[in-house]
Simulated scan of single mutants.
Amino acid sequence: MLKKSFTLAVLALGAFALSAGSVLAQTGTIEGTVLDGTTSETLPGVNVVIQDLDRGAATDVDGRFEISDVPVGSYTLLASFVGYQEETVAVEVNSGEATQVQIELAPSQVQLEDVVVTALGVEREEESLGYSIQEVEGGDLEQAGEQNFISSLAGRVSGAEVKSSNVMGGSSRITIRGPGSLSGDNQPLIVVDGIPLDNSNFNSLGQNTGGGGYDYGNAASMLNPSDIESVSILKGASAAALYGTRAADGVVQITTKSGSDRGGIGVSVQTGVSASQLYGFPDYQNKYGGGSSPNF
């Protein structure tokens, strides 16, 4: 009887050992590498988690990770890292095998607050300013295709009135929030990379009053719209306080392109053609004239 009980105990112990071995054999390992999707460089410190089991590991200095004793089955890995978008990968774990995985993370695009250039040329967040300011990107001015960048501001700046000449190379003038003086020029001060620019035209008194002559343009026509990175319109006396009385009608702050973001030598070519045709010629009498001075 004792011998029979001993035999049963041995058999039970063997069955338990076989059962335990069978359970241990139903697990596998997940191994892999996490790379930067742009540069293909390995990323250390990335958290890799099995979503279904809430188990995971972090990548080492070589960007590798290992999760052991994973039950057999299908799972989803979630890889996350600061500055990168989260990535999920489906894996299949087989008994006694190591499943190899390669995960590529794409850099995340962080939406920053709007940054504008103030009167001192310092970049600040638009919401932190205590005065009205509006910014126009240089690409919008270039797309307009105007010879004078002032003409390109028409319809893009609230409260601004733009008047342009209809002759080639003619002057363009801008007023912000209406005229502020009966005798002054009423144009805002133009500042290019911190240097004030007088936008008064070069026309004679007769030309300005419609007495004849040619419109030779003004200083704003000397600026190439393709060289402008951004234009900030500073409105109000507080915005233009640093420029004195010349900026009583506002400031047009221009920041030109620096070329620091371009690698190597870059060349851009733009061409344009404009043509004009008179609608009709009026009939003139050229036989008699009034002469000049009181003597006829």
Results as ranks from 00 to 15, higher is better:
Asp52Glu: 15
Asp185Thr: 04
Phe65Pro: 05
Ser158Glu: 05
Leu77Arg: 09
Gln207Val: 03
Asn201Trp: 01
Gly83Phe: 14
Ile233Gly: 03
Leu11Thr: 15
Ile254Val: 13
Val101Asn: 06
Leu53Trp: 05
Asp283Ile: 12
Pro188Val: 07
Val273Trp: 06
Ile265His: 06
Ser276Met: 12
Gly259Glu: 02
Glu113Gln: 11
Val267Arg: 07
Lys257Ala: 09
Tyr288Ala: 01
Thr59Gly: 04
Asp215Asn: 15
Leu205Tyr: 07
Val167Tyr: 10
Asn47Ala: 07
Gly56Glu: 02
Gly184Tyr: 07
Leu8Ala: 15
Arg156Pro: 04
Lys3Asn: 15
Asp140Phe: 13
Glu41Leu: 14
Gly264Lys: 10
Leu24Asp: 13
Ala17Ser: 11
Ile254Thr: 05
Gly159Ala: 00
Ala106Lys: 12
Gly244Cys: 14
Ser200Arg: 12
Val82Lys: 13
Ile67Arg: 06
Leu205Val: 01
Asp54Gly: 02
Thr255Val: 08
Ala90Cys: 04
Val91Lys: 05
Gly289Lys: 00
Asn201His: 03
Gly169Ala: 13
Ser171Gln: 04
Gln109Thr: 15
Tyr75Asp: 14
Gln102Glu: 14
Leu223His: 00
Pro294Lys: 10
Lys163Ala: 11
Ile254Arg: 00
Gly121Ser: 07
Asn199Ser: 11
Asp54Glu: 03
Ser164Thr: 06
Gly244Ile: 13
Gly263His: 12
Asp193Ala: 08
Leu105Gly: 07
Ser204Asn: 01
Leu182Arg: 05
Ser258Tyr: 04
Met222Tyr: 06
Leu223Trp: 02
Ser293Gln: 11
Ala15Gly: 15
Asn295Trp: 07
Ser258Ile: 02
Ile133Glu: 01
Glu87Gly: 06
Leu13Ser: 02
Phe65Asn: 05
Ser152His: 11
Asp185Asn: 05
Asn208Phe: 01
Phe296Pro: 07
Ile174Thr: 09
Arg156Ala: 03
Phe296Tyr: 06
Ser152Tyr: 10
Asp283Lys: 12
Asp249Tyr: 07
Glu86Trp: 08
Gly259Ala: 02
Leu13Val: 08
Glu104His: 07
Val46Met: 06
Glu92Thr: 11
Ala119Glu: 10
Ala275Phe: 13
Gln143Tyr: 12
Ile133Met: 04
Ser172Trp: 09
Gly212Asp: 15
Tyr284Phe: 13
Asn208His: 06
Tyr75Met: 14
